[in-house]
Amino acid sequence: MERFPIESEAYKQIVREKSLIRIKAPNLMGKSSLVDRIIDYALLQDYKTVSLNLNTVPETTLIDIDKFLRWFSLSVTKAITKDNKLRDYWDVELFGSVQSCTDYFEEYLLTNIDCPLVLCLDNLDRLFQYPTVTKDFLEMLRDWYEKGNNISIWKKLRLVIAHSTTDYINQGINYSPFNVGFPLQLPKFNEIQVLDLAQRHQLDWKKEAEIEVLMAMVGGHPYLVRKAMFESSYHNIELKKLLKDADEGTGIYNDHLRRILTQLQKTPEVLEALK
C-alpha cells in the first residue's frame, strides 16, 4: 500500500547529493516497509545499498562506543565489499573511535565505490537506552551530513534513519541529525486505502458495514487493520465476530496489547496516568 506522496518524496530525496531522510512513526506503522522500498528504488539507480536493523545489535556491543562503531563499520563493509581494511584505519589511542570510523568511511569505503551509497538505519531508537553511545553516534552522523557541504566524497552518502520516538538525547540544535535533512511522518490509512486493502485480501467488505466498524476500533493503523483482514480472509470469519473479543486474552489483538502492557509496566508512572 502506497501512501501518496510519501514514497514519491522519498525517491526524489534519495537521488539528491548528501541527502538525509528521517522517517518517524509509531511501531508497526510501516517504517521498515518504506525503508525496503527506498532500498529497492536505489538499487534500480545502480547505487550501493546497506540496510542495518539496530534491533539486531548485541547488547554487549551497545555498551561501548568502540565496539559499536566497529560493528557498524564492518556491517557496512560486508554489504558492499568483502575486503575488510578496518585495521589499516582504526587507531583508538591516537584518534578515538569516532574519528577512526569517519576516516574509514572517507578514505576507504566511499573512495572505493564509483556510485552513491544509501545507508539505512532502521529502529534507531534502540540506541536511546545507551546514552553515551547514542550521543557520539548521532553527532557523527550529523557531522557526516555537514561534510557533504564542502567535501565531494561525502556527497556520495545518502542516509535514511527510521525511528519510533522523539525521546532521543537532548544534544542541542547543532549536534543532532534529527533537525536536518528531509522529514517523513507516516500517516495512518484512510478509508479509501483500507477499502483497497480489503479488496486485495479478496474480502467483499462495504464501507458502512465493515470498514467503518474496523476503523472505529483501530483507526487506520496499518498492522491492526491488516491483522483483522488476514484473520478474516484466511480463516473465513466475519469481521463482527473477530472484533467481538478482539481485546480479550484469546482475541486477534492479544499479542499487540500484551506488548503495550509490557512497555507500560516498565514505567509505572505512565501506567498510573493511563489508568
Rank of each mutant, 00 (worst) to 15 (best):
A216I: 02
M217W: 08
M217H: 11
M217P: 05
V218D: 03
V218I: 04
V218K: 03
H221M: 14
H221A: 14
P222Q: 07
Y223N: 09
Y223G: 10
L224S: 08
L224F: 09
L224K: 09
L224Y: 10
L224G: 07
K227E: 15
K227N: 11
A228V: 08
M229W: 04
F230W: 13
E231I: 12
E231D: 14
S232N: 10
S233H: 12
Y234V: 09
Y234K: 07
I237W: 04
E238H: 13
E238K: 14
E238D: 15
L239H: 02
L239I: 15
K240N: 14
K240S: 13
K241F: 08
K241E: 12
K241R: 10
L242N: 04
L242D: 02
L242K: 02
L243S: 00
K244N: 05
D245W: 00
A246W: 00
D247F: 06
E248G: 11
G249A: 04
G249S: 04
G251L: 00
G251R: 00
G251S: 01
I252N: 01
I252L: 05
I252E: 03
Y253I: 04
Y253N: 03
N254V: 07
D255N: 14
D255R: 14
H256G: 09
H256E: 15
H256V: 15
L257Q: 11
